[in-house]
C-alpha cells in the first residue's frame, strides 16, 4: 500500500459517501444516471469475486464489502425508493449502456492476464469501469445545470483513478517487474474521459460560478 493508492481509495469512498448523502439528504437522485450506477455495481461484483477466496488484508476486504453494498444500495434506492425513483431523470438517462457491457466483455475475452473465469471477469470489470461514467457525463450535459453534490460526486470519482495512476507509477519505480498494463491503460482512458468535466469544474471553481457543461 502506498499513499497514492490510499488517497485514491479514500477519494473513491468520499465520492460514494457524497452520492449517498445527496440521495439520503435530498431524497432525490436528479442528475444521477441509474445506468452508470448499475454498471458500477456490476464492476464491483465481477471484480471482487475473490472476496471470499483470497484474503489480502482487513482493509481490502472491508473496502470491497463497502463498495459492493453501497453500489447495490444506490441502485436499489433509485429503482425502488418511492421518493427517490420519482426524481430519476429517466428521459435524460438514455445512453445505450448495453453496448458498453458487450464491448467490455468482448475485449476481456481478447485481452486478459490469464484465460480463466475469474481473470476474464476481472479484466471485464477493469474495462467496464473505464467507460461506466459515460452515461453519467452524457446525462450531465443534457441536464445543463449540475447541482453541487452531483458535481462533487463526479469530481471525486474522476480524481480517484487519477491517483491510482500515480500509484502504478510509484509501484513501477519500486519494482520494475511490476506491470499492470490492463489496469494502467484502462485507468488512463478512464481519467481522460473526465478531462472536459475537470476543465469545466475548474472554471466553475475559479469563477466561483455554477458548474455548467456545454450541451
Amino acid at each position: 500500500m502506498n499513499i497514492f493508492r490510499f488517497l485514491g481509495d479514500m477519494t473513491h469512498l468520499i465520492s460514494i459517501l457524497i452520492l449517498l448523502l445527496k440521495i439520503y439528504a435530498t431524497k432525490s437522485c436528479s442528475g444521477i444516471s441509474l445506468k452508470t450506477q448499475e454498471l458500477y455495481a456490476l464492476v464491483f461484483l465481477t471484480r471482487y469475486l475473490d472476496l471470499f477466496t483470497d484474503f489480502i488484508s482487513v482493509y481490502n476486504t472491508v473496502m470491497k464489502l463497502v463498495f459492493i453494498a453501497s453500489s447495490l444500495a444506490i441502485v436499489w434506492c433509485m429503482r425502488n425508493h418511492p421518493l427517490v425513483r420519482r426524481s430519476y431523470d429517466k428521459q435524460l438517462d438514455t445512453f445505450r449502456h448495453y453496448f458498453l457491457l458487450l464491448a467490455s466483455f468482448l475485449l476481456a475475452l481478447l485481452l486478459h492476464e490469464k484465460f480463466a473465469f475469474q481473470e476474464v471477469l476481472w479484466a471485464f470489470s477493469i474495462y467496464l469501469e473505464a467507460v461506466a461514467i459515460l452515461p453519467q457525463l452524457v446525462l450531465l450535459q443534457r441536464s445543463g445545470n449540475v447541482d453541487n453534490l452531483t458535481g462533487q460526486y463526479v469530481f471525486f470519482l474522476g480524481a480517484y483513478r487519477a491517483l491510482y495512476i500515480f500509484n502504478w507509477i510509484y509501484r513501477y519505480f519500486i519494482d520494475p517487474h511490476f506491470t499492470r498494463w490492463i489496469a494502467c491503460v484502462s485507468g488512463l482512458v478512464q481519467t481522460a474521459l473526465y478531462a472536459d468535466f475537470f476543465y469545466y469544474y475548474f472554471i466553475s471553481w475559479k469563477n466561483n460560478a455554477k458548474l455548467q457543461l456545454p450541451a
Partner: peptide
C-alpha cells in the same frame, strides 16, 4: 510481493 496476477488493489 503477491504473484503477478494477484489483484491486491481495489
Amino acid at each position: 510481493l503477491p504473484e503477478e496476477n494477484d489483484h491486491d488493489e481495489l
